[in-house]
Design a protein around this nucleic acid. Structure first.
Lengths: 178, 178, 178, 178
DNA sequence: GATGAATGAGTATTCATTCAT
DNA sequence: AATGAATGAATACTCATTCAT
């Protein structure tokens, strides 16, 4: 198997679980059965590896925001995004954890600044495209609120409340936007 | 002036700005004009200092959730909490940054586990007390949603979008709950 | 109870168990319920405390070597010393541990140099007084051998062999010198 | 030249002279012209280095106890061990100092526990093999006594008496066992 | 592509000691 | 006699990175 790919996979997992700062490359190398030098060879540095991982995870964000514009009403599109979001949140907790992590940590934010901006403006644009058709006047604020709401749900689900009623929240949210 | 207090103040500031993991104690001591040994003397360890700071910041959370039950209707109370939240969010950005940080970082979460649970259950309880009077059947889910929404707003305001329309979001939220 | 005395007692115990270098004064103070400043007040420094303890333990050595010259033959005196030694070795293991420790550790030896020389020349003199009456020509070597033998037994009993047959060793030694 | 080997050599010397606890790794690295990180790389930790050294010094113990079973009587074998022991004691004082040190210091004993037990049981077995042929009934006690005697001599020679008459002690011991 | 020895700056922590009260 | 805040040097250890092979 490709050692480069293996490295990314293991690193993603460990960075998500332990946090970027608290995951030494030695741990990554050990788990990936790979020598230390290989990281610098492929990714130049730890930050380089992080950027590579962040880039890869952007695909998941794209998928969540993919909608069928031709056959769906705006509200159906919104529901589609919500369904995709909750589905991902449950099945790929680590991905969300990783993202929360690197977005908040001041250090990693610096490293990922350009990629993060790219990604968040993509999300905003995609969301706004939907809301534009619902209420063009307030579409920006509503988009921001929509995004914030989902982020907040992810945050509380992942980090804060042990018995977060995700299912009921999902139903309520969908009802609200339907 | 009390060096212990000074230490807490400076550390709070630095931990918020740079993140806990990325703030060496040496930086704290230097800024606080204090010897390294003093941290060990007062707080036992860096984690001990973190816990002390987290404990202190809980007071801000308490203040946000303080409502006048006797003279306010539930909806007025909700508005009160919202006003307090947005006011704090603007005036004390660092506090929110600090909290987001330590709540998401796996390492700090372990250290603060008990304190975080205490705090979050306090917030949930306080919020639910209000929603109980509005819609007792769905009060738990609505409380969670309310909290998540605010957290999401803080997260997006602090971390993700540079031109987050906080003022408009605030107005919209207040209108929604009024 | 006298805090000074309490301090010596606790310190002796801890130094014996953990070794001098590995016993922080903080541990001594905590166990003795005494403030840190008090040690420097009474003993000037950690080394000062060590010297005080070493001085105190010399009394045990004196007791082991106390013989009744008037009513005992030299061989009886030797047996007396042996009996006292083995009795002490069993009842006061910590004392021997402490002594072995500080005698071998290069650092503590420097600190206790004068006291150790005093003590060892005392032991040699006392032992030689007995051997002088048995075989005056070889008394010095025999004394050294006698002392070395006992030290070796203590060392092996305390440190090296878990199932050291102390009782049988004792019988054999006594038979040899009787 | 192999830096790993160099590290062991220098460390052995310094640990012997100053004691394990009193020898900072910085001193070892400086003398060995090696970076601090290299110890961690090769031995994981200071304790790891200690264990490696202890393992290496076991070879000397093996050599002392090597006897020619086929061409020597038991008494000749005993004399052989004694000769080897005294020869080593004079030529390699540091080795004995190191061993005494780590065997008595409570901290190092814990670290070396398994290795020490292995070694001491080896010595006892080898010694008992000889005494079995001399007096099978008391061979265990006699072996213990023999070992203790030698340890005591080393202890007194190295640590306690400045003018220890090693040569005469040696002659007397050999005469005794011959 | 891949290894692993080697580096060195960085970091939390320990701890004896001092000193004002 | 006794306290405890404060110091600062010392120390083991971590870890990303480099580089020769």
């Amino acid at each position: 198997m490709d050692k480069r790919e293996q490295l990314i996979e293991i690193a993603t997992k460990l960075f998500s679980e332990r946090g970027y700062e608290n995951t030494p490359l030695s741990a990554v190398c050990e788990k990936a059965n790979v020598s230390k030098g290989l990281i610098s060879h492929h990714f130049k540095s730890k930050d380089g590896l992080l950027r590579e991982i962040f880039r890869k995870t952007t695909q998941l964000v794209v998928e969540i925001n993919r909608v069928d514009k031709e056959n769906q009403t705006p509200k159906e599109q919104l529901i589609g995004v919500l369904e995709a979001f909750f589905s991902q949140l449950e099945s790929d907790k680590l991905f969300f954890q990783f993202n929360m992590n690197v977005m908040i940590q001041p250090n990693t934010r610096k490293v990922l600044d350009d990629l993060m901006k790219e990604r968040s403006s993509f999300i905003l644009r995609k969301t706004k495209e939907i809301f534009d058709k619902i209420d063009i006047e307030n579409s920006l604020v509503m988009s921001h609120l929509f995004i914030a709401e989902l982020d907040g749900i992810a945050l509380n689900y992942l980090g804060i409340f042990e018995d977060f009623p995700l299912q009921q929240i999902k139903e309520r949210i969908i009802k609200k936007y339907a």
